[in-house]
């Protein structure tokens, strides 16, 4: 990421942070100013999902080309995804506590993010358990793909069935509110900013891991 771009990102996110608190209005129907957490919570969940996608694509490419660089990409994206998934869960839980009084309710979105967390944790447990680098890369790539095909079922099919049987589950109202245009702008801006942060961290980590592996080979 070029120097100019990095500084643009810095200013962008600084503006977004200001805007989240002073430009956008507090949404009605929420406790006080608590709706503002949305501008940080939603993008972290988005990045967690994006990272998962990147990881899976890299996994597929690894299985086709056996290029170690793809394994680096898959594992780096996975690590970032795990971090952002944790952030998303924590910010979401805080929000749930403010809005609905309890930290956890197992509504479909909360369930989805938990699922993502479990997948990431399992992915790294698998990687830790295999010593041989090529086998580690192959097995974790296969697992990433297995996880990827289960996601549509969890994300799309479960909520449909879920709702019909649990009508009293507390509804995450984000999807239902027609957003104030300023809120929408800030949210979109935040999404762009977080994506920028992710892509910077991602490319950086890939380079670091590349150096690390190269040096390991030299030592050996």
């Amino acid at each position: 990421m070029g120097t100019v771009l990095r500084w643009v990102l810095f200013v962008w996110m600084a503006v977004i942070i200001w805007a989240a608190f002073y430009y956008a209005p507090a949404a009605s129907g929420f406790q006080g100013q608590s709706s503002r957490i949305v501008f940080f919570h939603v993008p972290t969940a988005w990045v967690a999902t994006l990272a998962f996608l990147v990881s899976c694509i890299a996994s597929i490419r690894y299985l086709r080309s056996r290029d170690p660089k793809e394994d680096i990409r898959a594992s780096v994206a996975g690590a970032l995804g795990l971090t952002f998934a944790i952030l998303a869960t924590v910010t979401g839980s805080i929000f749930a506590r403010i809005m609905w009084g309890s930290y956890w309710n197992w509504d479909p979105r909360e369930t989805s993010i938990t699922f993502l967390l479990l997948i990431y944790a399992a992915y790294f447990a698998l990687r830790a358990a295999i010593a041989d680098p090529e086998r580690r890369a192959t097995m974790s790539a296969v697992y990433a793909i297995l996880a990827f095909v289960t996601v549509p079922f969890l994300v799309f099919v479960v909520p449909r069935i879920y709702w019909s049987l649990h009508p009293d589950t507390i509804i995450n109202t984000q999807g239902r509110i027609k957003m104030d245009s300023r809120m929408f702008q800030v949210l979109m801006g935040s999404l762009v900013g977080f994506t920028g942060v992710f892509s910077w961290l991602y490319s950086l980590e890939c380079r670091v891991e590349g150096i690390r592996r190269r040096r390991q080979h030299e030592v050996l």
Binding site: M1, R6, L9, F10, M13, A14, I17, W18, A20, F21, Y22, Q33, F40, W200, L201, L204, R207, V208, I211
Partner: peptide, 27 residues
């Protein structure tokens, strides 16, 4: 309170940015 939270967030962001920037230069 709002101002306070915003400033804290900004400081966190600045700190994070500075840290990652340094890592980038080192890499």
């Amino acid at each position: 309170d709002l101002l306070g939270i915003m400033l804290v967030t900004l400081i966190i962001w600045a700190g994070l940015f500075a840290y990652v920037y340094r890592v980038d230069r080192k890499v």
